[in-house]
Design a protein around this nucleic acid. Structure first.
Lengths: 342, 342
DNA sequence: CTGAAAGCGCTAACAT
DNA sequence: ATGTTAGCGCTTTCAG
């Protein structure tokens, strides 16, 4: 097996010092075209590649960003959300020539282990952490260790940090207004976990919209756990109150709600309209097609990586907060038979 | 912000050379209990953590393993498979104190970029690559660069490499035998892409089982793309041949098939029985509950990471091939109303 | 049991 | 424009 050549050797072969070779590798400023060409030739011939670790040692940059997801691992990937997020992240990371390291852990798992890896300087240049749950200790450690961090979502409390989020509140508000405009009056709500920022914000937004329309929930409230099954159960309970419309804080829960409606012998949207949130499942997955509030998850991921890069570079000093718009996509489950403005 | 202490400083504070401190950090052999204690105290007080990059430079180990998934990114995470795999990988990686780096790319994406990152020595100690598609160039490069590699699945052709796989063939064979035993005679097949090892092996296994039962496909064959929609379309075509049972090479395609059966006004399992493969969707997601061949994806991931570690350590010299069993789980969609042996 | 010294491969002043 | 030198923080002989 061919031993990997070092800068020194390339220099020897090309008949010059390693510094010159280094200059060529790194942009080739202050080098004569002749030597530059010579070096490039040798590099090509030998298949030389810079040793990233050695480079990191002096540059203090590894080119690795960590993605930290504190979550219930069992259900993590049953939600298409994280997949889309990762896609956006890797896409962006690739473009910036960075690589993504994955740190998944649930509450129980040895947090020290993760911490030692994530916080331990040297491995990652920065961290993107999802606000799926409030891991204050980890956040604090990141802050203490002065590790560039970007939050996807929003820290409910805790230090100010740069973040990328979507307009959960606005989206949920739209949903409420839409339902009200369609003449629904006994509207119910299936919430996402209240320990997540998305859960809180969607709840607040929906209440706001309702109030704006002169309506209120009157106790028609349930909390789910993002899963389809939890949505079904929540809807079952809600059905006792004879709602004519229900907003579920995620599409998966909405699908469960759809199921409950069907199982109860009722019809959606005739008996009860349903609106979801996320826009990550394709319309033809459900009958009727689901009206939902879409959020640009891929873009959030991509932007988070870019923002983190800026934080690492020091381009962004003070915490910056980026919010992507959400959009109500009207399909069949809300019972809007004709076209509707948002 | 507190500057990170180095070994040298710890030594200075503790009143000894950095070598001694280093010894304590790395297991503490050949050090007097007294100094060991002294060092540990200073380390605890200062919050010293070894600089991973510096350590890597001399140890030639980064503790990072790469997960390479060449796939159609749009549909990547719509399949629960990869999520489960990652969970197994990270679980195992955490246990071995390694971290997982993610390299996703579809065919079009700049392969050079990935290659430069994956193959470029120094960043990753080894690579786990999924055989979702045959990326011969990448495989060759890995081989050339002498990078420890473990394949999840099986290389259809290409060099011999350590791999972890499941018994796709055996599982599909079981499915065929089961269907035959239930008295089904006009059996159809929905295949997974023929450029994947799972697609090929499940096909072969199913044919074997059929032959063993004295049956054959007689042209009742379609190929899907793993997706639900492709399964639905495949089933629609198959329905023209009036099959009384169909095996779909993945659960998602089976769900699509279920849908097609329903849309055609037929009943599953009365008119046509359906068996899937994967066992990754929960039974209550479909009506009727899906009979399927389950594979232990989490374990595959976990084992792959362990195997890779062994390859990196040199414990495993010659390519090792590990195969996990699959298991037929009988539920409703195959029409076995009473308990059945496998 | 401990310290001194060398060096991993690279970059970045500082000379020339 | 190019070479020389000095580290980055750590591990690891090699002496003592």
């Amino acid at each position: 097996m061919p031993e990997r050549p070092t800068l020194e050797e390339i220099g020897r072969i090309a008949g010059m010092s390693r510094s010159t070779v280094s200059r060529v590798i790194n942009g080739g400023v202050n080098v004569s075209p002749a030597t530059k060409k010579r070096v490039e030739e040798v590099v090509a011939r030998t298949g030389y590649r810079p040793h990233l670790v050695a480079r990191s040692l002096v540059s203090n940059r590894t080119g690795v960003i960590g993605l930290v997801i504190p979550s219930d691992l069992e259900t993590l990937f049953s939600d298409p959300y994280f997949g889309r997020l990762m896609l956006g992240l890797t896409d962006s990371a690739n473009r910036m020539d960075m690589t993504l390291a994955l740190f998944l852990f649930d509450h129980d798992s040895n947090e020290n282990l993760i911490r030692s890896k994530v916080v331990n300087p040297g491995l990652v240049d920065g961290v993107i952490i999802t606000a799926t749950r409030i891991e204050t200790p980890l956040i604090d450690h990141l802050q203490e260790a002065d590790i560039p961090t970007v939050v996807v979502g929003r820290l409910i409390d805790g230090p100010a940090m740069s973040s990328v989020d979507v307009d959960n509140e606005g989206g949920a508000r739209q949903a409420a207004l839409h339902l009200a405009r369609l003449g629904r009056e006994r509207i119910g709500f299936i919430g996402a976990p209240a320990h997540t920022s998305a859960g809180i914000d969607r709840h607040r937004g929906f209440l706001d919209g309702l109030k704006e329309a002169g309506l209120s929930l009157e106790g028609r409230v349930q909390e789910g756990t993002w899963t389809q099954e939890s949505g079904r159960i929540a809807m079952e309970k809600l059905l006792g109150d004879r709602p004519d419309a229900v907003f579920a804080s995620s599409d998966r829960m909405a699908v469960g709600a759809l199921r409950a409606v069907h199982d109860a012998g009722l019809h959606c949207p005739n008996d009860v309209a349903i609106v979801g949130f996320d826009g990550l499942i394709s319309p033809d997955q459900t009958v009727p097609e689901l009206t939902t509030v879409t959020q640009p998850v891929f873009q959030v991921g991509a932007r988070a990586a870019e923002l983190l890069n800026a934080v690492i570079d020091g381009t962004v000093g003070v915490p910056e907060r980026i919010i992507y718009p959400t959009e109500l996509v009207v399909r069949q489950s809300c019972g809007a038979s004709r076209l509707e403005g948002s």
